[in-house]
Nucleic acid binder design. Structure first.
Lengths: 231, 231
DNA sequence: CGCGGCTTTGATGTTCATCAAGTAAAGTGG
DNA sequence: CCACTTTACTTGATGAACATCAAAGCCGCG
């Protein structure tokens, strides 16, 4: 983790156009002075479950996984998400401790703001409140929906769904580098690593995807969509 | 569904002490005049997935299930929840349509408020915003956590978890009437009806619970807790 | 009564986890 | 840069967990 000591560059932050549009120029300036940017290398942990909440965080660039550990010790991935869709843990305002761990799947930049400062904005700026509430509700809804979608599918459907998720939601490309290991896919969809690999091999044999190590190319999107829906 | 045409009785509503405490006497009065209470009989649908959002709703008394239907037609229960923990669908502020169906598991009273009125409060009352944001985040977090908990368990663990949930969270009693059918438990935990029944029978045979039709008595809480954790 | 829906139980088959053993890839230290 | 170590990946074989199917019992309700 490395503190990026850049001066106020919120000007070219995408988050600004999403949330900060509710703030005045003066408030944005203030917001800027209250934030700290940190950059994380792929693999680094942003925070651990159970740690005391010190900051409201949002992902500026990169990709993160949100996860926790089960009693038996294996990882359970809550969501894999990209900028502006990870807006900290939502219990910043209700709890005292982070509910999940977060780590960087790709080099990432995270913007930190003190919860107290956010609270002061909430207290005085109605438009900001509306915006944040909407945003947090959306993030939550998305996680719940993904989980429900996955739950109703079998192994094949889950793998197909995940590949379409990376291709469509994360990278917007039919060909992409998987940001996660096979084991992490398993932790995400709740199946065993061996079966994830087996299913990817099957897809490869059937000509649905091509695999070059971490690089995946989806050759037959339609078929994958059918498998995802049916599964 | 029946409109309860009572005059302003927010005075003895528990929700008041939770959320409305952020409002002035005058605002509470206004809030009251902007709300409509409806009562639903056990089994009645409060709203269907996909319907246009007309109201921000919260459950005043009773018990509801939040659910949707999978492509293959079976029900998927998102959560079973009691007053003050169901505060409408959260996408009231972001979406146009209800994301899930909601129906009454017990006779219930639902309080309806126009989203526009809630929005106006959000815009002008910071404390109310904070409160609502916290509340909605909590509701969402709870759903996510329950889902993650269930996902990591096997059949036995899931049934044990559900029984403890009804006993501990919903009824606060070792003996209670199941508000749901066996099939609904199955829809909730994501397993087949036959296996839910089989497992309940096993628990009965092992003396962990007693079953009189819909009435369940937990005889051995400790054992159930062990099964829930281990499963 | 008698019909329909919910419940129960057993038998059978599918899906998936686990185990094991081997290969490839990616770090690590000299 | 190479040998060594570790970690990730792959595949097959086996068994456990769970779904599905079918038949029968129960219970409430018209």
């Amino acid at each position: 983790m490395e503190l990026k000591d850049i001066d106020c560059v919120c000007d070219n932050c995408e988050f600004r156009s999403i949330v900060l549009e509710t703030l005045s120029e003066k408030e944005i300036d203030e917001f800027c002075r209250n934030k700290k940017e940190y950059s994380y290398r792929k693999g680094e942990v942003i925070h651990h479950v159970g740690e005391k909440i010190t900051n409201f965080k949002y992902l500026k660039t990169g990709l993160v996984k949100v996860f926790r550990r089960t009693s038996s010790g294996d990882e359970q991935i809550v969501t894999i998400t990209r900028p502006f869709e990870f807006v900290s843990n939502m219990n910043v305002f209700s709890g005292n401790n982070y509910r999940y761990s977060v780590s960087a799947l790709e080099d990432s930049v995270v913007c930190n703001i003190s919860p107290d400062y956010i609270k002061s904005l909430l207290m005085k700026n109605g438009a900001f409140s509306m915006m944040l509430l909407t945003r947090i509700a959306e993030v939550n809804e998305k996680i719940i929906e993904q989980t429900l979608d996955l739950r109703q599918k079998n192994l094949i459907g889950r793998i197909a769904y995940s590949l379409l998720y990376f291709s469509g939601e994360i990278y917007n490309s039919r060909i992409f580098d998987l940001p996660v290991s096979r084991k992490e896919i398993a932790d995400y969809i709740g199946m065993s690593t061996a079966n994830v690999i087996r299913t990817l091999s099957d897809f490869k044999k059937e000509g649905i995807i091509r695999v070059y190590g971490k690089t995946i190319e989806i050759s037959d999107v339609e078929k994958l969509e059918i498998l995802s829906k049916r599964g």
